[in-house]
Write a protein that binds this DNA or RNA. Structure first.
Lengths: 141, 141
DNA sequence: TTGTCAAAAGATCAAAAGGTCTTGAAATAG
DNA sequence: CTATTTCAAGACCTTTTGATCTTTTGACAA
């Protein structure tokens, strides 16, 4: 509803990583085990998160992915920006590139509170929160 | 940021219509006059709004588009649903089709308040509000 | 050093979204 | 009835997004 599917994958992936990891690197194959995540595409997504500095990756034996810092220090907004770039959050709330000062979109002001609320949420929610929520969901069904 | 560009066009289009109309049908050419909206694509969007019952359309001389009911009786959510369908609002908040009870997405519960806020906004904001906002923006610059 | 493992990177492919163009059909004026 | 106006509808094109496949690179173990 709000994010692209690629971003959803990233959120899901980093949450799964936090759940399955015990400070040790997790293999892509293990990460997607038990999920319906598409392996090859997921590889790209994880690469992006690595390049953005949210994950550390290692090749070869004992390799895999792990969080670059504690889960509670990675905010949802960091994940979103890693995938979609800064642009989407700034500028026009409706994302209209055609929208500018000379020809503003109808929503410019109206939307501010809504958007701010979303941004707040993304800034205060961490990967630790997401993982906890996902774990709980699995237990309770 | 939140809606697809097609939906943005719909919001913009119906707002322009309300601004330019004096109870009389407006031609597509007049609707887009002074805007950067793509005419042909806009025709499709307006057609969708007509089929959804938000607009009335008439062919031939004296034809064009007009609101099917007063602007204050057309909610933003009606416009969004007309373009994107019901599905997007219901179901998973993140829009994941892969998300279900057996394999819920990480956000299912976390997002509820945010989503509810958005839905509230879309239910209480009408085309009259949007048009007023747009008009004001034009005057004040 | 050699072999194997696993991520990185790039090519490629498919589907969806966004946008254009052409033809058809309805309404009205003359 | 015919010509013109204007929306409707469908074919078609382009770009972006989502997804896969293959090759390369780096790390470790023996």
């Amino acid at each position: 509803m709000i994010f692209s599917t690629t971003t959803e994958y990233a959120i899901r992936g980093i949450s799964e990583l936090e759940i399955k990891s015990n400070q040790q690197p997790i293999l892509l194959d293990d990460l997607i085990k038990g999920t319906d995540l598409p392996r090859e595409f997921m590889a790209k997504v994880m690469q992006k998160l690595s390049k953005a500095g949210l994950l550390q990756s290692a090749k070869g034996r004992g390799g895999g992915f792990k969080l670059a810092r504690p889960a509670y220090e990675i905010r949802l907004i960091d994940v979103v920006i890693a995938i979609e770039g800064e642009g989407r959050m700034g500028g026009c709330v409706l994302g209209m590139s055609r929208c500018n000062d000379a020809m503003p979109c109808a929503q410019h002001d109206l939307y501010k509170p809504i958007r701010q609320r979303l941004v707040d949420y993304m800034q205060t929610t961490t990967v630790a929160d997401l993982a906890a929520s996902l774990r709980q969901k699995r237990v309770r069904g």
